[in-house]
Design a protein around this nucleic acid. Structure first.
Lengths: 183, 183
DNA sequence: TAAATTAATAGCGACTCGCTACTATTAACA
DNA sequence: TGTTAATAGTAGCGAGTCGCTATTAATTTA
């Protein structure tokens, strides 16, 4: 690819990121809090601890610790401490949190208005870019159970061969921190 | 487009934004300072005032005021006050600032490794998304002189019909806050 | 000339970020 | 088994962003 196109793509990514962030600042939550809340709503029951949120967001444990406490203070998530490991805790999104996430943003409208070709090209390009960046940095992919190498289909739901747990149909579409891309 | 694809694209944009930000935090500058420095290096002499940086970045004047003072403190940009309007000032990137911008990032490598189709699709998709978002919010496009409705080619360089100024060849490729997309 | 507008900035409270330090708790191994 | 070592979560520091509300100074507009 031409060096000029590379720079242009990078500039567009930066610009779009800033437009998204600017939109996210207008409301009760800041961009970090939005991302954390949205992640928790999509993550499965094995992936909702502060460390896993931090991993997903490429943020530090310290920052996420504070972020989650702020969300809990606002009543959008609630804290549950683990039975098996007394060090670890897990969060789940409350009804108030879910209703906040249902609000559509301006960006949704703009994405929806993309027709066929720009949309599919964008999808493929972003997918590739994110996957390659994660690989290069040695970060976990955080994909959904359905597409994981440890996933075994079982009726409507499934079974995780790594954790030895049965998954409900809904859970097969949730994000897992242990995800390994199926071949 | 399917609602599911929309959500996926939005999630990818958020994720990529966070990966970029995480990379930008590792160094002497923070993400806001990087973007401001990079903008100043590309903007023409009519577009390097704090207000214009703030407009480009969808940030407030207050934040940008502090950001630019921080960059100046670090010796990466220098302040020049205007002759014509005593309220306004302009910044230009120093040699130290330029050399900092020449460093290639990890993201550059990943973008460069994209082959034909994902790259061109990504380019088109991002371009469309950014343009539509700017239009919807009523923000200025901040394009380069060359592609502006006020631009008149003149030898190697050009002339701006709006500001009545002659442009050197280099300047025709710089970003202008007055840019209006040519028909 | 008075009133509105614009450019830049200061300061407040909430917050993120990288960092180091610290407390529990759990795992590893010699 | 007992002593490291690793892990999970958190607190607190300093720098800085963000939205906000003034404030000052200069420039237009009526």
């Amino acid at each position: 690819m031409a060096a000029k196109d590379q720079q242009r793509i990078k500039a567009l990514i930066e610009r779009l990121g800033r437009l998204v962030a600017a939109e996210e600042w207008t409301g009760d939550l800041n961009p970090t809090q939005w991302t954390a809340l949205s992640y928790l709503a999509q993550a499965n029951r094995f992936s909702r601890a502060p460390s896993q949120v931090a991993d997903f967001m490429s943020a530090t444990r310290g920052t996420i610790s504070q972020t989650l406490k702020a969300l809990a203070r606002k009543g959008l998530i609630s804290e549950i401490s683990s039975e098996t490991d007394k060090r670890s805790i897990s969060y789940s999104v409350t009804a108030a949190g879910r209703s906040l996430l249902n609000r559509t943003s301006e960006l949704d409208g703009v994405i929806a208005s993309l027709d066929g070709e720009p949309a599919s090209g964008l999808h493929l390009g972003l997918e590739t870019l994110v996957r390659n960046t994660l690989r290069q940095r040695g970060l976990r992919p955080f994909g959904v159970c359905k597409s994981c190498a440890h996933f075994q289909k079982k009726g409507g739901g499934g079974h995780c061969a790594l954790l030895g747990e049965t998954l409900t149909p809904r859970e097969t579409d949730q994000i897992c921190h242990e995800h390994v891309e199926a071949a």
